[in-house]
Design a protein around this nucleic acid. Structure first.
Lengths: 138, 138
DNA sequence: TCCTACGCTAGACAGAGTCTAAGTCAAGAA
DNA sequence: TTCTTGACTTAGACTCTGTCTAGCGTAGGA
């Protein structure tokens, strides 16, 4: 994660306590926190951090390509720091658990040109849904 | 669309002017209106229709399986009356235009069991993104 | 025609996110 | 080290989407 801070600094990012804490909270694999969760965890370390700063910082990380926004349920967006390895998401329909997954094959090529309506298609976003092991047995 | 009204009536749906107008507004192909847009168009025909009724009716149509909820951008949900033919969505990253598309192949089978983490996977939702012909040339 | 349970309305409320004005401070310059 | 300045942060108001409630209205059966 200090890699991340170094990269950001190299791009002229002013390094403040608030930004450092937000970046640290987002560290790890299979992390998919809402802005509110990020704020709560950041506030545990830096009590006076404001919601606006969390939103600003998340927005900056997203536009710098360091974090991905995921909208799996139409409610709050989630923020995924695993931005450097392309992946998709597997979501439990009951409890909302999220895993990063790597489908095989070229997802873009599944869309024949007759189905592209003249669009220049550049990205695919896939959400697999089902029940996680816990919810399936419960 | 009168098919739809007939089907709903057959399921014990009480047919009111408000519900009829909402159903009519949603008629057509490649229709992906937000609740607010549905309300605006419904109100053009039935000025006293309330937001709550539009939300209630949309919610009922969704749970009856006649309309699909689509969340392409993390903002307002969109409502897609094309619920009887499975399809995915192609979205313009600039103007937000949406088309229904039909990818080839079995999208579920692209996720190897080693990437399922014990989940029972039952659905896939795909959003293709790119530029529509208008936005690509502009 | 009458009844009544279901549907409708206005408006309050809630959650997620954005914006603004004023104060603060990181980091380069001297 | 101290100064300076513009970028950053804050609190809180505001917007947008969506939900809920209490009381009124009405579709459709008897």
């Amino acid at each position: 994660m200090s890699d991340l801070l170094e990269r950001l600094r190299g791009r002229g990012w002013r390094l403040t306590a608030q930004r450092r804490v937000v970046a640290e909270v987002l560290d790890g694999d299979h992390v998919h926190l809402t802005a509110d969760e990020v704020h709560a965890r950041a506030a545990a370390r830096l009590p006076e951090i404001s919601r606006a700063t969390v939103y600003n910082t998340l927005g900056e990380l997203v536009s710098l390509g360091e974090v991905i926004e995921v909208a799996t349920d139409g409610r709050a967006k989630r923020y995924d720091p695993n931005a450097h390895r392309p992946h998709q998401h597997l979501v439990c329909s009951r409890c909302g658990a999220i895993r990063d997954v790597h489908p095989s094959g070229d997802l873009l090529s599944d869309l024949p040109s007759s189905e592209r309506f003249g669009f220049t298609v550049s990205e695919v976003e896939v959400t697999y849904r089902g029940l996680c092991p816990n919810c399936a047995t419960a």
